[in-house]
Nucleic acid binder design. Structure first.
Lengths: 122, 122
DNA sequence: TATTGACTTGAAGTTAACTCTAAGTGATAT
DNA sequence: ATATCACTTAGAGTTAACTTCAAGTCAATA
């Protein structure tokens, strides 16, 4: 699979894919004789994981750390579990903050719909 | 209320509060004869709103736009409602993406706990 | 054969949201 | 009186995550 297809598939740009590779999140992707990247199934799986986690706002530095440990094999299992839990906790905090803001926005919109507008309430 | 108390109250830095003021999100805050800011109840309410929305990742440019319209009074009600809905939609997308990542992380952690580790699965 | 289009590289540029620095003021504690 | 402390300013610096640029290669098509 060529870079533009992969980009298309995940809604990323080719620049972003090369950037992720530069940062060591994925690859190094195998290249054909002409120097063109050819993504295989494992590359795709990895990109899918990265895309999902990045969409949720997880930092590249974390993903790099986790994936490096993954590549080191079974001896890193314990450490990997720990950082997954840590990231999930961070994510939970963010989710809660966002849910709170979401509910506040919903309430505000309802007030606008009912024309109950307090000049002093933002 | 002085700047450091307000910062403390909301878990912001004084630099951030002055930055928000520079950007026109809040204030201009009234100052005493010595030039020191004195935050009143309305300032606090506004900061609470900004803090909540920023914690959810809403952009400063949006908050600026919304709060400027708010200050213009009743004639902007319709436009305000529209941008609130728009922001809520954006927030919903993000919430969904984060929930998906959260669930994925939870599943992974469970696999780690049960020692079901597929070498080919990230 | 010439041009088009997708790819390649290293490096520089961009953006949002802070964060820090340097230099200064003014009230209070020793 | 002198030191400490919280505050003030304008402006420069930082960080993460891209994004763009300039210059080049290569295969396929008009």
């Amino acid at each position: 699979m060529q870079i533009s297809e992969v980009a298309q598939k995940f809604g990323l740009t080719t620049d972003t894919l090369r950037y992720y590779e530069r940062e060591g999140l994925i690859g190094p992707i195998k290249k054909g004789k002409n120097g063109i990247r050819n993504y295989d199934e494992d590359d795709i799986k990895r990109i899918q994981f990265v895309k999902c986690m990045r969409s949720a706002g997880l930092e590249i530095s974390f993903l790099k750390k986790y994936l490096d440990l993954f590549d080191e094999g079974d001896k890193t299992v314990k450490e990997r579990r720990e950082i997954l839990v840590e990231q999930r906790n961070i994510l939970k905090e963010k989710l809660d903050a966002m849910q709170e803001a979401y509910d506040k926005l919903t309430m505000k919109i309802e007030l606008y719909d009912k024309n109950i507008l307090d000049k002093n309430l933002i």
